[in-house]
Amino acid sequence: MRTPKILLLTAPGLYGARDYWPLLRHLGASPQSVALDDLRAGKAKLMSFAGLVIPGGSSYEDVVGAGQILGGLMRFWVEELRRFIAYGRAVLAVGNGFQALVKCGILPAFSSAAPTAGFAPNDSGRFEARWVHVRLNTQSHSPFFEGLPEMMELPVFHREGKIILKSPKHLEEIKKNKSIAMQYVSDDGKLAGYPANPNGSIFNLAALSNPQGNCLGLMPHPERFTSVYHHPNWTRQTFRKPNVGLELVRKVVEYAARA
């Protein structure tokens, strides 16, 4: 596998970059931390990279809403980003990064440029830090899901993780074009309410992708399940649960290497 060059976006408070840099290196990628200001100044060109990771955190301290400022600042970049995605390059946006992608209208991917979704505060009215069960959409075209189990456990950490859509027709549309990537489920795999759905997202949406699946945004944090010892119950498991977070990021790197 050739070493894919991956752009790791950084911005004030986007502290997840500190987790992704060593992780991407570990998986054989060549990550390069690039600040949004440097992209704006033309010091780095997105198209020279094989992949993009927008990590989680609390960009600009989420002072006007989670990912709102970052998403707003990214607007200058949207067209280039759309081209990047259209060329089939890998994009992974997690937590705050996902919120920013939604804010700037990249996800969900519709023909209209205007944002059709957003994030609202969790139904519980507070920050939610817990491990959740998610079910992958087996009909998703995402190349990042190849070989991953349909059901997996991942941690979520957010205060505004409730995905809302502009209108019911948008839900139908994302169902139809297979943009639903993951849903929150109970431990027996059924759609369920809180705390299985930790934020009250419509249709238990946990992750969205573009119809081709090479741009994936998700609220659960795969970078926090990269070792079997990250699982909260590893001390009671005879057979340790596979560290699916690592596998998911590995698929992104492998795809980027092929692209």
């Binding site: 987790d19 830090a129 817990r130 941690p155 950490f157 970078e223 926090r224 070792s227 990250h230």
Partner: peptide
């Protein structure tokens, strides 16, 4: 309170504050 604290950032926490079968 613990559910409102980010106890796992940086990916170092292998024994967490909420333990047991149902965490």
């Amino acid at each position: 309170l613990v559910r409102q604290m980010d106890v796992e950032s940086q990916g170092h926490t292998v024994i967490k504050p909420l333990q047991g079968l149902r965490h």
